[in-house]
């Protein structure tokens, strides 16, 4: 969708993390590792990540309860994913990695980078969730009617498929993913102390945002930047929250940033 350079499809691999949590990891390419943490939904897919495989070894784990990773009911908050991902990184790619997190995945990536700054070579936070910004709050996904949610999610509604493409399976899968999300963030869609610890992140960080994001307002970018020690902000004109599905420029901005020495 975002690129025509894709050379290799993402290939699923089953893994067990921390003794008994089963997950699916998509992988493609070779080179420096690029670990991508996805956002709160997986239905639209990750075709865009294939273009990164030209330069990097792309590692795209599904969070437990998302995509084809089964739910792990022991995980009750976003922080519970930190040891999960530190273990997965140890198993899959020891040593510093490039880390890219989108939305919920940005929240996770920032927590991993706070807890283990040495594991992150360069960091991209794409319209990340997790901060509490009272002046420009993150939209509460749970109280929106489905049609309102769809209207806010992307500036390119065709990405979400036509009404005819809806099936019983797709509705059930969507409900299951929203349930997995609720287990983590129903109580609040931010982490009250995240902002306090962003100074621990030592990696050069790109904060990437669409100017038309109606889920997490682009104004939050400056809050991140003011707390991250080595950050730069890039905005993509007119792009909504499904940043990488919507904008090839956003996908390329990641590659360019990560290629820098």
């Amino acid at each position: 969708m975002s690129s025509t350079r894709a050379t290799e499809p993402l290939t699923p691999e089953q893994r067990v993390v921390g003794g008994d949590t089963q997950v699916t990891v998509l992988r493609a390419g070779s080179g420096d590792p690029l670990v991508f943490f996805h956002g709160a939904g997986t239905a639209v897919g990750f075709d865009f990540a294939a273009s990164w495989a030209d330069d990097f070894e792309v590692i795209l784990p599904f969070h437990p309860g998302f995509g084809s990773s089964p739910l792990d009911t022991r995980l009750r908050e976003v922080r519970d994913l930190v040891p999960h991902y530190l273990q997965l990184l140890d198993d899959v790619c020891p040593g510093p990695v490039n880390m890219v997190g989108h939305s919920l995945g940005g929240w996770i990536a920032s927590l991993v980078a706070i807890h283990a700054p040495e594991r992150v070579r360069r960091l991209v936070l794409a319209c990340p969730a997790g901060l509490r910004v009272p002046s420009h709050p993150t939209t509460d996904l749970f109280s929106l009617a489905p049609r309102e949610l769809a209207a806010r999610l992307t500036s390119r509604p065709e990405l979400l498929g036509s009404p005819e493409s809806v099936t019983v399976d797709s509705v059930v899968r969507q409900y299951e993913e929203t349930t997995s999300l609720a287990r983590l963030i129903w109580e609040r869609n931010h982490d009250r102390t995240l902002q306090q610890w962003l100074g621990r992140i030592s990696a050069p960080t790109l904060v990437l945002w669409g100017t038309a994001d109606r889920i997490i307002p682009v104004e939050q970018a400056d809050v991140w930047a003011s707390r991250l020690p080595r950050s730069q902000v890039t905005t993509i004109e007119g792009a909504g929250h499904m940043l990488f599905n919507e904008s090839a420029a956003a996908v390329d901005a990641v590659s360019s940033f990560l290629r820098e020495p």
């Binding site: 749970f142 489905p146 059930v172 609720a182 287990r183």
Partner: peptide
């Protein structure tokens, strides 16, 4: 959507 918050019904 108010009738069916996430997780309220089993899949």
């Amino acid at each position: 959507h108010y009738r069916m918050p996430p997780g309220y019904v089993p899949p």
